[in-house]
Amino acid sequence: MRQRKPLVVANWKMNGSLDLVQQMSDALSVLKQPLPDILICPPVIFLSYFPKHANYKLGAQNMSEQLVGAFTGEISADMLRTAGASHVIIGHSERRALYGELDSVISQKVKVAVDAGLTPILCVGETLQQREEEKTLQVLARQLDAVYAAQPHLLAHSVVSYEPIWAIGTGQTATPQQAQQVHQFIRQHLAQYDVQAADAVKIIYGGSVTAANCEALFAEADIDGALIGGASLKVADFSAICTMAKDS
């Protein structure tokens, strides 16, 4: 039996409203125990509007690698903690592709997050071209090594999310077997840094996860939950995913 408690993460991206905040909070508050770990990552402007409930936590979608200073538009790890966040998504493919975030910056962000008491959710994944060229494992190894090779102690304080870029927002998803193979590789690769931490770390899947396909994904041994985009904006769908995750 899986010993790692499943984690379901809602990444609202640049979406949401106060109405959705209330609807989501109301829906999650009435879900029956036991539940997976549930994390909502809305735009940071909404963090303070969530009612305090014991059955979900709040996170952010990004943060600065800087601690404080003249960095217009940036938000620090300490500010996120003050706003009520316990986790932060780092290295999402959209940050890497659209804003040019390099492995070196992502590595720095993970360290700053852990030092501030936040749990980083490190996103790794390959493009369609890299997958077709059979470079998936090479790409993932590079992205993981950039963070943990010189800082193996950070692994025990992290979550890792495998998000094949070709499956994000496309309606495509890796088959459960394909995803499991990659998750297993990630766990084995991380074991070179810390065997115990690699066994305990939650490795979640992100890539067009829906209420229709999540159950099969959650049944795989090394898939410990999901990072959910579009479906996390649909209250009924997200609630259903949470319910299915608790039974995995």
Results as ranks from 00 to 15, higher is better:
Arg2Tyr: 01
Arg4Gln: 03
Val9Ser: 03
Val9Glu: 03
Ala10His: 06
Trp12Asp: 04
Met14Trp: 07
Asn15Glu: 03
Gly16Asn: 11
Leu18Thr: 15
Leu18Met: 15
Met24Phe: 11
Leu35Lys: 13
Asp37His: 15
Ile38Gly: 08
Ile40Pro: 13
Ile45Met: 15
Phe46Met: 10
Leu47Val: 09
Ser48Gln: 10
Tyr49Asp: 13
Phe50Leu: 07
Tyr56Lys: 02
Tyr56Val: 03
Lys57Tyr: 00
Gly59Tyr: 11
Gln61Trp: 02
Asn62Tyr: 08
Asn62Ser: 14
Met63Arg: 10
Gln66Phe: 13
Leu67Lys: 13
Val68Pro: 01
Gly69Leu: 12
Phe71Tyr: 15
Phe71Ile: 05
Gly73Thr: 06
Gly73Glu: 07
Gly73Pro: 04
Arg81Ala: 07
Arg81Phe: 02
Arg81Ile: 14
Thr82Gln: 13
Gly84Gln: 11
His87Ser: 05
Val88Phe: 04
Val88Trp: 03
Val88Asp: 09
His92Thr: 11
Arg95Asp: 02
Arg95Phe: 01
Ala97Glu: 02
Tyr99Ala: 01
Tyr99Ile: 01
Tyr99Gln: 04
Asp103His: 07
Val105Trp: 09
Ile106Glu: 04
Ile106Pro: 12
Lys111Glu: 01
Val112Arg: 12
Ala113Gly: 12
Ala113His: 12
Leu118Asn: 09
Leu122Gln: 04
Cys123His: 06
Gly125Ala: 06
Leu128Asn: 08
Leu128Lys: 15
Gln129Ile: 07
Glu134Met: 12
Thr136Asn: 01
Thr136Gln: 07
Leu137Met: 13
Ala141Asn: 05
Ala146Glu: 05
Tyr148Pro: 08
Tyr148Gln: 10
Ala150Leu: 11
Pro152Trp: 08
Pro152Met: 06
His153Thr: 15
His153Ile: 09
Leu155His: 05
Ala156Tyr: 05
Ser158Glu: 02
Ser158Met: 08
Ser158Tyr: 04
Val159Pro: 15
Ser161Pro: 06
Ser161Ile: 15
Ser161Met: 15
Trp166Glu: 02
Ala167Trp: 04
Gly169Ala: 05
Thr170Phe: 15
Gly171Pro: 13
Gln177Ile: 06
Ala179Tyr: 00
Val182Glu: 02
Val182Gln: 06
Val182Met: 06
Gln184Lys: 13
Ile186Gly: 11
Gln188Met: 04
Leu190His: 09
Ala191Cys: 00
Asp194Glu: 05
Asp194Ser: 14
Ala197Phe: 12
Ala197Ser: 08
Asp199Val: 07
Ala200His: 13
Ala200Val: 00
Val201Arg: 10
Val201His: 11
Ile204Tyr: 14
Gly206Arg: 12
Gly206Tyr: 10
Ser208Tyr: 02
Ser208Val: 06
Val209Thr: 04
Ala211Asn: 15
Asn213Phe: 15
Ala216Leu: 11
Ala219Arg: 14
Ala219Cys: 12
Ile223Val: 15
Ala226Ser: 14
Ala226Trp: 14
Ser232Pro: 09
Ser232His: 13
Asp237Tyr: 00
Phe238Pro: 09
Ala240Met: 08
Thr243Trp: 01
Ala245Lys: 07
Lys246Asp: 11
Asp247Cys: 04
